[in-house]
Write a protein that binds this DNA or RNA. Structure first.
Lengths: 235, 235
DNA sequence: TAGGATAGCTACCCGCGAGTATGATGCATG
DNA sequence: CATGCATCATACTCGCGGGTAGCTATCCTA
């Protein structure tokens, strides 16, 4: 990434304002490498599953040895945890972002769900969705549960707000949130990078389904969703 | 089960019509025990996950030794496979059953989804949903993929039929099937037997969500679903 | 130029768990 | 009684993989 510019500088002893400069750069280098380890782990977990991936596999993918991996991460469990966090963070960010927006709750929910879908289809999606408490120590399991719950509660809240402001059809927030999140989470099970659709496109298609519902709509309300669909089906 | 009546008979040498009678009974006994092994495995997989469950665990739960388990099943992989089949069979049955019914496709789809939800919330639900190709030999993985695909195609077909007969809002069958199945599959991740709702009730709630959609309905069409919901929310 | 921190490797330990060799028990048949 | 089959246990093998001990190389700093 930024290695190409930063490295030669320090190697050639550029005018150093602070004696800590080189140190900071080394730390940043280390961070870059650490992230590479996380990504390699996510990639491997994606393809072969957590339990079928050995740390030797991950090391081999990075063309280093196993102790090198342990130099950047304390153990396998933490590796999974980091992948989980990397996967779920964009969703949390989406909630924060949307909190400031002045729009009907349904639109804010849609924005969140779009990011949600993209996150699940990302390289960390598998880890986020499949990180199981059974595979983790109680402490990490607790962290993960808390983060998951935060997302769940966020969706329920948007649903309640939507029902109140009239932008969402009356519904049971808990069950509806389960249904929405479940459908999106499940993307991680079938989505492959090579697919023709991107994560955003899938999220968009799902949102269309969720919005219109299965029962045919009559009159003025089946406007956008239905028209978009007929366009999609036409090509 | 039927052991109480059948065993004494054979032990007491009841009038035997055929010399194979005792043999048949022994075979049936064996089948009963075999199923007990499968169920114990499903139970353990449910709680601790496939990879965190050893065959010693399963044996211990049955109060037998590991070789006894191997006497009824050839290896761990097959154990998972059997659980998967036990989980998915009710869904296949639902499709067969519904094929004969003369109803709008949306109602037939609903019937299937109800069984689907119950199956996922059953004791084999976890195994059905989580059986991963990575954990299985290519042969079994192929079987499982075929069965999963059969279900998927069945849902898509019902959706297409529904769009044609007008009982379902125009939609992309592929994406809609993914959304529906995903939401239902995900039940296995959060459902616990102790929960207040049964699998059937959850399926019912989900169907309500899918049918109405998030966008508020106006006029005559928000009849059943919305009324049902206001009842639910009232108590 | 010595000393120390950083980064990485080879070679190992060791426990867990899948699967098995072998033998004991018991029941039916001849 | 002897033979054979079915059922199950004890006690093992063995490889995989998480994790570590200890050595080496490099580079920065004093």
């Amino acid at each position: 990434m930024s290695r190409e510019e930063s490295r030669p500088e320090s190697a050639a002893r550029a005018p150093r304002e602070s004696p800590w400069r080189a140190n900071r750069e080394r730390l940043r280098d280390r961070q870059v490498k650490r992230e590479a380890v996380i990504r390699a782990a996510a990639h491997a977990f994606n393809r072969k599953g957590y339990h079928n991936t050995s740390l030797d596999d991950i090391a081999a993918a990075l063309e280093v040895s196993k102790p090198t991996v342990y130099y950047y991460v304390s153990n396998k469990e933490q590796l999974l945890f980091e992948c989980f966090v990397a996967g779920i963070e964009p969703i949390r960010a989406a909630f924060r972002e949307v909190r400031l927006v002045k729009e009907p709750a349904r639109n804010r929910l849609k924005a969140v769900l779009r990011h949600y879908g993209q996150a699940v289809a990302s390289e960390f999606g598998w880890c986020m969705v499949r990180a199981e408490d059974q595979d983790l120590s109680p402490a990490m399991s607790g962290h993960i549960k808390a983060l998951k719950s935060e997302i769940d509660q966020g969706i329920r809240r948007l649903l309640r707000e939507g029902v109140q402001d009239g932008s969402i059809h009356p519904c049971d927030p808990k069950m509806t949130a389960f249904a929405l999140a479940g459908a999106l989470n499940w993307i991680a099970h079938w989505y492959r990078e090579s697919q023709s659709l991107s994560g955003a496109q899938i999220a968009e298609a799902f949102i269309t389904v969720f919005e219109s519902g299965l029962i045919p709509r009559t009159g003025a309300e089946n406007t956008r969703a239905a028209r978009r669909m007929s366009v999609r089906l036409a090509r």
